[in-house]
Design a protein around this nucleic acid. Structure first.
Length: 323
DNA sequence: AATGATTGCAACCGCCTTGAT
DNA sequence: GATCAAGGCGGTTGCAATCAT
């Protein structure tokens, strides 16, 4: 036997609330409070389900609600708490005065998930995609490995297509040189803007990703799985930081560096932040145009400004390159 | 300017939990 | 302990606004 409906569906209005309805509900609640939601619509003269009234009040009409853009600090809090709590929207919202669980959920689904993906971070696990791929690779025996790139691409296909084909997400860059503790350096002013050239040809780009993945699989050591994942970075110290550098456990002098990602809301007014593996400082030289030159493992050189990317997927291919 | 695609968010749905009886 | 009703919650949908072509 199914659950009894909370109201008579036939006699209730649904859909968008009108200003008059809002006024009726607000006025009634101001006078009588929110004691019994089933009776409120009847007493307030509304042809609405009590549940609908409750949602309208809690998500929109409550006087203590904040409306408008989420602040950087709020975003940081959401991401940090989500990494610990998962989709416990009401718990997360409780830490954000004036925000409802619906607000937080919507903001997560429409903005923050994309931002994290754009940073190469899986929004479900809050781990870098490279780490996930590496984990998969480590669990497979060699005969299975050739299929991994295809499988991995399938897993992340939607995210990748979004990254590759949609407008660039408004992240900010910030570089931190590994081994230079607490000396985060912002990207130069001439870092490429977010208006990176987009490829129309998705298939070609996907082929490049496949190639990149297969290379990563064949040489899993380059992926360097993160050895621990610190989810305890709370905003009070300046932002949620996926501090890859401190997690990689590679130590100073490592030939591999990884930029520090401080999230979409990094404090410096710089540019997009991304997680990219770059060659160590000594291998990064300035060129005459202010860009940098890195020496890849095979000895070839690649130019980069802030878009120093792994493998052969150039910044032209990836708007927000994966690690 | 027209049209289709995408985005953002309000609202709904249904399950779960809680409290009263 | 069983049942019922209401509130709470997370997932999903619908649609207006905006963007891209």
């Amino acid at each position: 036997m199914g659950r009894i409906p909370c109201c008579e569906k036939d006699n209730v209005k649904r859909g968008q609330w009108t200003p008059e309805e809002d006024h009726k509900l607000s006025s009634y609640i101001a006078q009588h409070g929110t004691r019994n939601w089933r009776l409120i619509p009847k007493h307030a003269g509304l042809q609405r389900c009590g549940k609908s009234c409750r949602l309208r009040w809690t998500n929109y009409l409550r006087p203590d609600l904040k409306h408008g853009q989420f602040s950087e600090a709020e975003e940081q809090t959401i991401v940090t708490l989500h990494s610990v709590l998962g989709n416990r929207w009401s718990v997360i919202a409780a830490q954000l005065p004036g925000r409802t669980d619906n607000d937080v959920k919507n903001h997560w689904n429409t903005k923050l998930k994309k931002k994290l993906s754009g940073m190469g971070i899986d929004p479900v696990t809050h781990k870098p995609f490279s780490h996930l791929i590496s984990e998969i690779a480590n669990t497979l025996s060699p005969p299975q490995v050739p299929h991994l790139a295809e499988a991995a691409l399938g897993c992340f296909k939607d995210e990748m297509l979004h990254l590759l084909t949609k407008k660039r997400i408004g992240f900010q860059f910030q570089f931190q040189q590994f081994g230079m503790a607490n000396t985060a350096t912002t990207a130069p002013n001439n870092v490429p803007s977010t208006s990176v050239k987009h490829e129309d040809n998705k298939d070609e780009t996907i082929e490049k990703i496949k190639y990149g993945l297969s290379r990563a699989i064949k040489e899993p050591d380059i992926l360097n799985p993160i050895k621990n994942w610190d989810t305890s970075n709370f905003p009070e110290n300046g932002g949620f930081n996926y501090n890859f550098a401190s997690l990689l456990n590679e130590g100073e002098g490592s030939p591999w560096n990884q930029s520090l990602c401080s999230g979409s809301t990094c404090t410096a007014g710089g540019e997009i932040q991304q997680n990219k593996r770059i060659i160590s400082n000594e291998n990064c030289g300035e060129n005459s145009e202010g860009g940098k030159e890195i020496v890849t493992r095979n000895g070839s050189t690649t130019m980069f400004n802030s878009d120093c990317v792994l493998w052969d997927i150039s910044s032209d291919d990836l708007m927000n390159p994966m690690v």
